[in-house]
Simulated assay, not measured.
Amino acid sequence: MRLKGYPEEDVRSARKLISSFIRAAEEVEEKIEEAGERGELTELVLMVIWNRLDLARRDDEKDVIRSS
């Protein structure tokens, strides 16, 4: 819902950038710095990161509930 106000192509690009961070593994910090230098760390990119973190937390909570 938070991303609804952004053009679909921009959201897709932001998601691709975040996916590249995730695939970077040990080099993630370097990738983030490079994106910052290129001006790619926009509000939209940060919102996509926030959404992914939120989903991951919810999945962790579901796992905890299932294992109880």
Score class of each variant (00 low, 15 high):
M1G: 15
S68Y: 08
L46K: 14
I22W: 04
D60I: 09
D60S: 12
V48W: 09
V48Y: 02
L17Q: 06
V48C: 04
E43C: 10
M1F: 14
K62S: 06
I18Y: 13
L53M: 14
E9P: 00
R23C: 05
R38F: 15
R23Y: 07
R57G: 03
R23D: 07
I49Q: 02
D63W: 09
E61Y: 13
E26P: 03
R12W: 08
E9K: 04
L55C: 13
G39E: 11
I49T: 01
S68M: 13
M47H: 13
V28S: 05
T42R: 09
P7T: 06
G36M: 12
P7N: 04
L53A: 08
K31S: 09
L41C: 09
E8L: 05
I65H: 01
V64W: 12
R57A: 12
K4D: 09
E26Q: 06
L55K: 07
L3I: 06
L17K: 02
A25L: 00
I22A: 06
E33R: 08
D54H: 13
E9Y: 05
M1V: 15
P7E: 07
W50R: 11
S19Y: 06
K31D: 09
R12A: 15
R15M: 08
D60E: 12
P7W: 05
G5P: 01
P7R: 05
A35Q: 05
V11A: 03
E61A: 14
G5M: 11
R66S: 15
L53W: 11
I65G: 04
E37N: 15
R2N: 14
D54R: 11
R2I: 10
W50D: 13
A56V: 09
I22H: 06
F21C: 02
A24K: 01
E40G: 12
V48D: 04
V64F: 12
E9C: 05
K16Y: 06
V45T: 04
W50G: 08
L53C: 10
K4P: 01
E61R: 15
D54C: 11
V48E: 03
E37D: 14
I32C: 13
A35D: 06
V45F: 01
M47I: 13
L46W: 09
R66W: 08
L53S: 07
E8C: 05
W50F: 09
E37F: 13
I49G: 02
E61F: 08
